[in-house]
């Protein structure tokens, strides 16, 4: 098992980031080219002002009516996304690894804060799971892939927490942490996790159509 460790902490990290960044850029470029070929209206009507207006109303909590109608879901969704993105970037262990490798780094979270944020991510995922199972419309919409994605996102956080606290079998957990994190990055451009990259474009286009052409609000 120890032989995989250097691979998982070295080469595979590069592969994961390569696929994540390369895949995301490639898919966006292909989409942009496809739009140029088959959906020229997108370029014709795209307006940065109205796109930004719409995006702003959807990245601030409670700025849209849909969010105000579902306060619990809104708070959980925002807290989840904030913790999901910030924890891996600012967790001390990650920053220290970067420092050791490249002699450079950035501010990092106090350990207790990272712990709490990790627990929040997992609890939010449990909430999403419960929502998928219990809320009739969401249950109907859910596919097997949606459940797998919840697990895929939860895995690096659970294993990371396990490793940090050095519980029983933490070495294996550490390895699984790296592998699951890499798997999540690799899957990002090719699964529904890609919604992250699509958001500014779909929302921006909707905002442009509503604002610039139809003279209406879309939030």
């Amino acid at each position: 098992m120890h032989e995989i460790y250097p691979l998982a902490s070295g080469f595979l990290v590069w592969v994961a980031f390569g696929v994540f960044i390369g895949g995301t850029v490639l898919r966006l470029v292909l989409l942009a080219l496809k739009a140029r070929r088959k959906d020229p209206v997108i370029y014709q009507y795209f307006s940065f002002y109205y796109a930004a207006r719409s995006i702003i109303h959807w990245i601030f909590p409670f700025a849209s009516k849909g969010m105000r109608d579902h306060p619990v879901f809104t708070i959980i969704a925002f807290v989840f996304h904030i913790c999901l993105i910030l924890t891996p970037i600012f967790v001390a262990a990650h920053v220290i690894l970067i420092m050791e490798s490249w002699q450079t780094g950035w501010w990092y979270l106090p350990n207790a804060a990272a712990d709490i944020m990790t627990i929040i991510v997992v609890l939010c995922l449990l909430f999403f799971l419960a929502r998928r199972i219990l809320q009739k419309d969401v249950r109907y919409l859910s596919t097997a892939g949606d459940y797998v994605l919840l697990l895929l996102v939860a895995a690096p956080f659970i294993t990371g927490f396990w490793t940090y606290h050095q519980w029983y079998g933490f070495e294996t957990a550490g390895l699984l942490h790296m592998l699951s994190g890499e798997l999540m990055l690799i899957c990002l451009p090719f699964t529904r996790l890609f919604h992250m990259a699509l958001f500014p474009f779909t929302r921006g286009y909707s905002g442009s159509e509503f604002g610039a052409v139809k003279g209406a609000r879309d939030w």
Partner: peptide
């Protein structure tokens, strides 16, 4: 092939099945 453009692809991929549209 001929008419299913970027919107069709993007909309098919962006939906996270969250159900926020239901009550609309």
């Amino acid at each position: 092939r001929t008419e299913g453009g970027a919107r069709l692809s993007a909309y098919s991929n962006a939906c996270v099945h969250c159900g926020m549209c239901s009550e609309a």
